[in-house]
Amino acid sequence: MVLETSTTVNSKIEIVNFKTLSKDSFVEIIQENRVSLYRLSKSILKNEADVQDAISETIIKAYTNIYKLKLMDSFKPWIMKILVNECYSIIKKHKKLELVDDFADYEGSYEDKTEDNLMFYVNQLDEEFKSVIILFYYDDISIKNISIILNISEGTVKSRLSRAKAKLKAMMENNLRGDSFE
């Protein structure tokens, strides 16, 4: 990937000139983050079509506004924030629609094809807990950036992480004993 970069003398922070970023380079950056984008959107939206719509809209918005981004290190939290906003926008649109037919038969289902058994339990969590677990452990995003992405305080992120871990532990212990979880 070819990016025009310059380094500030004092802070040694890489600054990327996104105004000269080629389409191919942008596509490469998106490809590097596609799993994270999918995982987060799937944790918020349950319908596969909505997930794809949210990701598509996020990519379009990111590409048209890339010139606003100054630091390459900020790209992932920045695009994840756009994605979260798109997901909630889709949820709001669905709440406004009044459906006369039952579309339950048409909804897509999500199966995690990875060997990760923990993801089975993560998917059982409420959305507020699932999102912070996925962002923190699967996407390696800092608590500070998660608070920005989800528009909640850092204390709330820490609290949700702690509560989510406790719930996961309880679910796994119950499963080992043969109990149903909840």
Rank of each mutant, 00 (worst) to 15 (best):
S6T: 10
S6F: 15
T7K: 10
T7I: 05
N10I: 14
K12N: 13
I15E: 05
V16Q: 00
S22F: 01
K23C: 00
I29Y: 02
I29F: 01
S36Y: 11
L37V: 07
L40C: 00
K42A: 14
L45N: 09
N47K: 15
E48Y: 15
D50V: 07
A54H: 05
I55N: 04
E57R: 10
K68M: 03
K70I: 07
L71W: 05
S74G: 11
F75A: 06
W78H: 00
M80T: 04
K81N: 01
K81H: 10
V84M: 03
V84F: 11
Y88E: 12
Y88L: 09
L97E: 11
L99I: 13
A104W: 01
E107R: 13
E107P: 03
E115M: 07
N117E: 12
L118R: 11
M119Q: 06
Y121K: 01
K130D: 10
I134W: 03
L135F: 09
F136V: 01
Y137M: 10
Y138L: 03
D139V: 05
D140N: 14
I143L: 10
N145V: 04
I149F: 05
I152R: 09
T156H: 00
S162R: 14
R163P: 06
L168R: 11
K169F: 03
A170I: 08
M171Q: 04
M172F: 00
N174Y: 13
G178Y: 03
G178E: 01
